[in-house]
Design a protein around this nucleic acid. Structure first.
Lengths: 196, 196, 196, 196
DNA sequence: AATGAATGAGGCTTCATTCAT
DNA sequence: TATGAATGAAGCCTCATTCAT
């Protein structure tokens, strides 16, 4: 009687949701949130504008969904495998490993990174998004802090903030300056400083 | 009509231009570029929308003018007085002095800072603005590099990039996290690391 | 498949139809026709949007069905029992009885009442609905006229129109002014005038 | 220097405002508020949609403006000249005179009348408009009450409500039934009742 | 030089209706 | 019979830009 099984339907919906989110990220990353229209996204996703609103209540909601969907994945990408490696690597090696992962993911997910950075600066009047972004930064701070504690670094909390700032700063400059930025050299310098 | 009048006019025009630019910065900083309308700016500046277009061909042109006018001033603010101090301070003291200035200016000019950071991330299709911003970052890199060279720091070029990144990263986090960010502690930690 | 099943089905369909109609009335009454969506109604009725279109060809058709189904019931409510009472009550008592019923039903069915009044004013391009509403008013006029004739009131036809107008006018004002309208006092005044 | 004098400009703006208001009334009256789009109004008024929003902040604001602009004029039309006549006519003649005016204006301003009646029933979620309409009904009630007091009618307040209800009810029925409603006869009956 | 009325394209969103399943 | 994903037209509104005055 019922059309499609509920489960199959739910799965399809989930797929569609992801498709929209990824298309949105792609668009937002390319032109920024405000310069991207719902129309753009729908067109890129090959669906009608109206359908968007079956999945997300508003453009802002879509943005939140994008961030909430993609950011944890990126963070996970960076820090994943750490627990396994934790047993075989020295703390310093771990730190170096994570840093490497950071730079890899930053380049792979440049769109996401740029988007969240530009959003970070202009969410004063978008409280929901502000909150999501704050949580994201907090999470990263905490993860780095944990790593430092394993290394018995004193003042791990503040030190974590310094390191996170440096990484984000490098990302910022890399995105702005592009090929003119010697990312590899900066990365090596960063690692050798950290590990020293 | 007379040459005098022409000159006076020219001066007046220049003044007005500056006034518009500063008003625009104020508005852009407060609500972001896209959420600020030409109407808003004209109203705040106390002139008509029409007149705005006698001074700037488009909204984007105005944005460029803002960046071009204001960014060098901020950079100058940070590094000004350095040449004078250079004679009386040790290199390390100089470094510490500049860092202090950086944090002061960052807080004083938070609006400008946020604006240029958010623009930095989404200038793919705004080449003129991209160029201005690139120059700004380059200038800062060079200034820090000079300072480091005075301190006989090896690899001054790369080191300058690391420091600049860290400063901008701290600014980024500070703007996002606001009161929840312990700027003072981070700043002290940064300085003591630099000077060590 | 068997005739029995067909009959049962038919009955079920009828039940469902009524259920949709009543749900629709409830919704239309609460938020007005235009501010109520088919989605709203389907959700409230616990069925799918698609199924709605098995029962009604369009939203306007549903509206017509609502009016056609519900209005006669309300009229009936007011005048029901009259023939029985006619034998035991004096004409004046009857009149008073009906008036009481009118005010009762008006309050019980406020939603329906408001809906049909607001529709009454803007049916220029909805001829079907216009017709239903016209019939309703005619029916009421005739019923009142009959009552008056029993009372040997001269010019019963015109008088009926005056009374009907007064009742509807009171309803109108009551709906608009709500608690600020002293319905009880007005009602008493109306009855004492009628009966005098 | 300035284009047009400010006064001339103000006058033009006022004219335009009125033009929009009257066009809007015409449209709202014909098809109701919800079935009339801003587009419709702009088209009828021969202006762009955007211009509407130079004069009114929203569609709802426009509706309020329509009512506030037009209702007092209609009320005035009905009750105007009363103070002059008050000296030469007996109270009953006055009452009859006002009633006549009511029916004239109701027919002349049928659009406005229908609009405000239909709105009356569906403003539950438009508080601003509800308020305006309540005020309108209050005003009429007070005016009638005053008239009755001159006639030394007891219970003038309640009586005024009854009369107002009757008049509005007649209007309601007249609008619904159109040519099938014997307005002239009803009117005569109403007047003779009132005056008796 | 200066105004601000006017335009029109485009943005976000809603919703009646259809149709594959 | 029943679902609800999907469409697309239409609605309200904003705003950069132009232009008559």
């Amino acid at each position: 009687m019922s059309p499609r099984t509920k489960q199959a339907n739910e799965k399809l919906k989930q797929k569609r949701r992801e498709q929209i989110i990824l298309t949105a990220l792609e668009n937002f990353a390319k032109r920024g949130y405000h310069r991207t229209s719902i129309s753009d996204i729908a067109k890129t996703a090959g669906i009608s504008k109206g359908l968007m609103y079956n999945y997300f209540d508003s453009k802002e909601d879509l943005l939140i969904a994008v961030i909430e969907y993609v950011v944890p994945q990126a963070v996970e990408k960076i820090f994943s495998g750490i627990t396994k490696k934790a047993k075989t690597l020295t703390p310093k090696e771990l730190m170096s490993f994570v840093t490497d992962r950071f730079f890899e993911v930053m380049q792979e997910e440049a769109g996401l990174w740029k988007l969240s950075m530009s959003l970070s600066m202009q969410v004063a009047d978008m409280p929901k998004i502000h909150q999501v972004i704050v949580q994201m930064y907090d999470m990263v701070h905490r993860k780095i802090e944990e790593l430092l504690k394993r290394n018995n670094v004193p003042d791990a909390a503040i030190k974590a903030r310094l390191i996170a700032a440096q990484l984000d700063g490098i990302a910022l400059h890399y995105f702005v300056l592009g090929k003119n930025y010697n990312l590899e050299a900066v990365k090596q310098a960063f690692i050798s400083e950290i590990v020293s």
